[in-house]
Design a protein around this nucleic acid. Structure first.
Lengths: 342, 342
DNA sequence: CTGAAAGCGCTAACAA
DNA sequence: TTGTTAGCGCTTTCAG
């Protein structure tokens, strides 16, 4: 349906061999200045573009990278993808995005699909359901380039790019404590995720640092990361029915933060008068919320960029890079009124 | 770095020719049941996957589709991409996403890039800057499959999938009128975009239907669609300094809606007490805003899905489909308090 | 029913 | 400096 010129067309038109044309196009040194100019000009004229598929077949690289995230329509991930895109595009890679919707089965299937498409490497943020990481181990063992970002695997040595979840969380909880709260609950994603464990750990550490006893009842996990509305409702209700009732909640994920607030409001409770909130979110409109939200914001764009840079470096390295890179970027706390003690 | 098996490996292992293996794998009829079974079992055992790049080279299809949008980190587009993905994935296509950031030059470059990657077709939502559509005309003339969605081109016959912008806008403005407002302003994107013109047209029509005179001063265009913060600030300030000052604003885009509210708030004005708002947005958290936002929401996911279906149908059609499909989906108005007359 | 060989577009080793 | 040829993985005539 849509034809484009090949090296053969040029060769024929100019009465040269394809290899000569190829050499001219690639600026090889073993080529006559005359011929070179001739070829280049003609190629320019007909707007010749090399066929990347043929190149891929030749050098066994697809120049594509696979991305596995839970969902695209999510503040954090759409920003991260933006970062991934920006680097990949400039380096001549294209990006194939797949979504797990927090399902382990989908994750496995996506990876198989990406492999069958011969992606040169993988950028992965695991699903909330994932506990079995053998697929990754297998690939990594074979020397296949993978960089994990945000939701990294805990039990594997690999390249990892994350935010400093501990510090971000610690600061957030401490902020609530300094505000005067002591009965602070924690609403978080599946415990399968290292980020959840780190954020929980920080929550405990902050309480501990201020001599506030840790109450396990104050911690609720939503194993589907807020993709199942009901799960969040149950968790929030349980929290609100506790005695003594928490005065504040530290929420560990984007989706959970918005869901939780919406539930609280629907119950007719006020934020922060009845319950204060600090949450992780990369929403750009948190300041427009009622009340304006105090948030922990991750450098999603940069995380995407850095992960992609590391991945491409690995892909293009002649020898498998044996030492793994772990990068941790700082989060940012933006103080607004949802965390106020009245 | 990461090897996979080829048809040759199977042939060698089984003492067959590659063509026999190929036939077995493809379920050709001219093949012995025995041999076939043998090959299939072995292929299964070693987990053979055909190399899609080789296939692409053979049949001159890349099985990829290019997407051109202004930005990914946008409620509407991330949802649309979600829809695109969902269809493409199932049909064995992968999706290459590019962003224009509302620049015409970027748009041209992206399309060149996608073409050089030999995508089989294009899904396009043009940039706010685009007026020259000759590139599209050229491709379309050559029979190259393109489907426009959301921001479609006005002056070209092509496949187009959009929301019913006129009706959505008309209803929104009428809602304000019925609420009791007569001094209604309109904040919108570049007039280059057909969607802007349609929404403006509907705004005028609704005023007209209720015998409210149209005041050109009440209409402000932001030619960069809210990507440039300053531009929105100027527009909103001008609107607010008008005499008589508008009592309500109908806003025609996602980004503009949130920017505008944020500016109004920063000026210390209240919504809807000082100025009421109805806006286009696909945000999932509009109900959490202060005040909860009355919005026109587009079926972004479905628009993405339908556009992709049409595109793939075109790609896979033996003969260029000569009649163009235009689909228009209904928007949804969600009434909340930002549009109240107090 | 199976194998040999050509060809998709390109590069590179080898000849000339 | 340029041409010839083989080969990347696969399908598909064409022979057998």
């Amino acid at each position: 349906m849509f034809e484009s010129y090949t090296i053969k067309d040029i060769a024929k038109a100019l009465g040269l061999s394809t290899s000569t044309v190829s050499r001219a196009l690639n600026g090889s040194y073993e080529i006559g200045t005359e011929t070179k100019k001739l070829v280049l000009e003609y190629a320019e004229k007909i707007n010749y573009r090399p066929n990347p598929i043929a190149l891929s077949l030749k050098d066994q690289k697809s120049h594509s990278i696979g991305v596995v995230v839970c969902e695209v329509a999510n503040n954090y991930f759409s920003q991260a993808i933006n970062g991934i895109e920006s680097i990949a595009y400039n380096r001549g890679y294209h990006v194939i995005i797949t979504q797990t919707h927090e399902s382990f089965a989908r994750e496995e299937a996506n990876i198989q699909h990406l492999l069958s498409r011969h992606v040169d490497g993988l950028l992965v943020s695991i699903s909330a359901e994932t506990t079995d990481t053998s697929q990754f181990k297998y690939l990594l063992d074979k020397g296949f380039p993978i960089v994990f970002f945000d939701r990294v695997v805990a039990d594997i040595e690999a390249h990892k790019v994350t935010a400093d979840n501990f510090k971000g969380s610690f600061d957030a909880v401490e902020l609530l404590i300094k505000e005067g709260f002591t009965k602070i609950a924690h609403l978080t994603n599946s415990n399968n995720l290292l980020i959840s464990r780190e954020r929980l750990e920080a929550y405990r550490a902050a309480l501990n640092a201020h001599n506030i006893p840790f109450n396990p009842e104050y911690v609720k996990h939503c194993n589907h990361g807020g993709m199942v509305q009901e799960e969040v409702e149950v968790a929030v209700n349980e929290l609100l029915n506790l005695n003594p009732r928490p005065e504040a909640i530290f929420i560990a994920s984007d989706r959970l933060t918005t869901s939780c607030i919406s539930i609280i409001k629907r119950l007719g409770l006020g934020v922060p008068d009845n319950i204060a909130i600090v949450g992780f979110t990369n929403s750009n409109v948190a300041e427009l919320f009622d009340p304006p939200l105090t948030v922990i914001r991750q450098p999603a764009f940069q995380i995407g960029q850095i992960a992609t840079e590391i991945l491409i470096k690995n892909i293009e390295s002649k020898y498998p890079l044996t030492e793994f890179v772990t990068q941790q970027l700082q989060t940012e706390i933006i103080l607004r009124s949802s965390s106020n003690k009245l």
